[in-house]
Design a binder for these strands. Sequence first.
DNA 1: GTGCCTGCAAAACATTTGCAACGGG
DNA 2: CCCGTTGCAAATGTTTTGCAGGCAC
Lengths: 131, 131
Amino acid sequence: MQNRNSAQRNLILDIMDGNKSHPTADQIYDEARKVDPHISRGTVYRNLNLLVDNGNLLRISVPDGADHFDSTLVQHYHFYCRKCNKVYDVPEFCPSQVIETEKKLGKLGFQSVNHNIVFDGICPDCCKENH
Amino acid sequence: MQNRNSAQRNLILDIMDGNKSHPTADQIYDEARKVDPHISRGTVYRNLNLLVDNGNLLRISVPDGADHFDSTLVQHYHFYCRKCNKVYDVPEFCPSQVIETEKKLGKLGFQSVNHNIVFDGICPDCCKENH
DNA sequence: GTGCCTGCAAAACATTTGCAACGGG
DNA sequence: CCCGTTGCAAATGTTTTGCAGGCAC
């Protein structure tokens, strides 16, 4: 099935392109609404799913209910603040040991193995607020 | 802490103790219901949150809507099957590079830093079903 | 008794889906 | 035209919450 061009999908890609804030579907919806006040939630969710399936976006699952999305496709990791629910990028590091484990899983019969590392804790901003 | 003893909470701990299937709240509710047919969903969710906060259980966030829970507290990782949504334990490995990154985050002002690694792909069972 | 805990039901969220209309190729 | 896509609203799924009564300590 071939995807057609659509103003709504392009708008979502525009919003996500270079966006480092890891927004949730609803935050993307709000942002899109500013440009196209008639775009619907269903369309945003449908397009986010499609873009994740097509490899244009990454879905980040954290324990705050809503999924977050990321347009940075190169290998990198995230930090999730348990207090303000914000998602941060984690400075790059070379996870050769993790890659080894991926290979090991492959040998055990798992296929298309990928991985995600999510650090969590309290972010610097929230730490400051405690004083 | 001021937690009281409660039959419902003990039941949930019983169900989770030694349980390697990483069930969702609803699966735990079904299981609990077999023993105590009057236990309510609210009670299961309330107790799961309490047990996670107290460090008795781990919450695993995967992209299938519902959180999964785990009673194995020693450091280990998970594999999430994108097809059947099951969560598997991953053979242990020593992620010294990940620990290094945790320390680095600490120096950058992040506190109480923890981490989770979730591998994903298709599990051996689901691979077989394709033939 | 005090106040944590429970069951119940309703509410609050997050996400998907059925459908008729729209519009890209 | 075909059929992917949209807006809308309703449905679904997950989790939280308000409240009155119950129970642990």
